[in-house]
């Protein structure tokens, strides 16, 4: 029982990442009709926003310590971060320790800008082109973005730890009256909470603001909204920026979970597309529902008891479920009629 509960927690956590990326993908597809294969790269760029903030906050003055030697026998370079010099050792190290949450403030404008420039500079030229062209150009863009990051940051994973206040895990067992351990890492719980917040904020933005209402109307009938004199293209461009920011924020907060590397976006991309297709192309609630559902199923399939009966099921479960759902519900769980069916 405790193992199942633990895997459900795990699934919610994995599903958070899937749902956030799939939500952004669906936003772009639903508004602009573009199949964006560069969306995983936006997730990766978000994670590297966290790396960048950590590096900026760690910029240091260097002094030589004659009493210690480096690997070549020279005096050891001692680095003192500027923030520690400016704010004192305790406050300075606290600021560096909280670099990942602080990176959210950095990532929002950066990712909005990147998304907006991507859409205006490249993707808008492919609106009326076949989906195959869109896939090719966005996939190419993803590779370019990867290589740029690799050029500046190298190919190795870069450790980007969570604040020390969130190191360790919370044991749910006493709460549930279990006599075994049901410990789950604090930061993963934070990630789940953060994802829920972002998903809620996106839905609230679309549901309760005038801007969101116009966007939803444009998603349903772009031409009619245009005839009303509303510049729907401009709003859709902003939505692309928002989708990029959502992917970026998912990346920032994911950085402490797995050390960021330049190809981490590709690791999530295929899964996220499966999530979008299972959820239903263009359906925002479908993307979120499918994200969490597939995350939980993937985690449960990793249970030793399940693998003992079905060896290797953990590697294929998502694709098996996708096939079954598409066979029984060709438009996905919550897909709308007419989307990608012409």
């Amino acid at each position: 029982m405790d193992a199942i509960l633990l895997q459900i927690l795990n699934g919610l956590d994995k599903g958070s990442a899937y749902a956030l990326i799939a939500l952004g993908l669906t936003l772009i597809f639903g508004t602009l009709g573009v199949v964006n294969f560069a969306h995983g790269a936006l997730f990766m760029l978000g994670a590297f926003c966290a790396v960048t903030v950590q590096k900026l906050l760690s910029l240091s003055t260097i002094t030589l310590d004659e009493t210690q030697k480096d690997f070549l026998g020279r005096p050891l370079e001692i680095k003192t971060p500027y923030v520690e010099s400016w704010f004192g050792p305790e406050t300075g190290s606290l600021i560096i320790d909280w670099s990942v949450p602080l990176a959210i403030l950095f990532a929002i404008p950066v990712m909005l800008f990147i998304g907006y420039v991507m859409e205006r500079g490249l993707i808008k030229h492919f609106y009326k082109r076949p989906h195959a062209d869109q896939i090719l150009v966005t996939f190419g863009l993803a590779i370019v973005l990867q290589e740029i990051i690799k050029y500046f940051y190298g190919a190795n994973p870069i450790p980007t730890p969570a604040p020390s206040a969130f190191v360790g895990s919370f044991d749910f067992a006493p709460l549930l009256g279990l006599d075994t351990s049901l410990a789950y890492p604090y930061w993963r719980l934070v990630y789940f909470g953060f994802s829920t917040l972002i998903i809620g904020a996106v839905f609230a933005f679309l549901q309760f603001t005038t801007f969101g209402m116009v966007v939803r109307a444009g998603m349903a009938d772009r031409e009619t909204v245009g005839l009303l004199g509303i510049d729907i293209d401009k709003r859709f461009s902003i939505m692309f920026g928002i989708a990029a920011a959502v992917a970026g924020l998912a990346g920032v907060m994911y950085a402490p979970i797995n050390s960021p590397n330049y190809h981490m976006g590709m690791d999530f991309l295929v899964l996220s597309f499966v999530v979008v297709v299972v959820g239903g192309m263009g359906s925002l609630p479908g993307a979120v529902l499918a994200g969490f559902m597939l995350g939980i199923l993937e985690s449960l399939a990793s249970l030793n008891e399940v693998k003992a009966v079905l060896p290797g099921i953990d590697q294929i479960i998502i694709y098996v479920v996708a096939i079954v759902i598409l066979l029984t519900r060709p438009r996905g769980l919550m897909g709308r009629k007419g989307v990608m069916e012409e």
């Binding site: 895997q7 795990n10 994995k14 690791d267």
Partner: peptide, 21 residues
């Protein structure tokens, strides 16, 4: 126990969770 993990795995949490108990 010996659990085989796919080479393409990036998140090992679902393989580590069963270790706990």
């Amino acid at each position: 126990n010996n659990v085989l993990t796919p080479l393409a795995s990036t998140d090992f949490s679902s393989y580590i969770a069963p270790v706990l108990n």
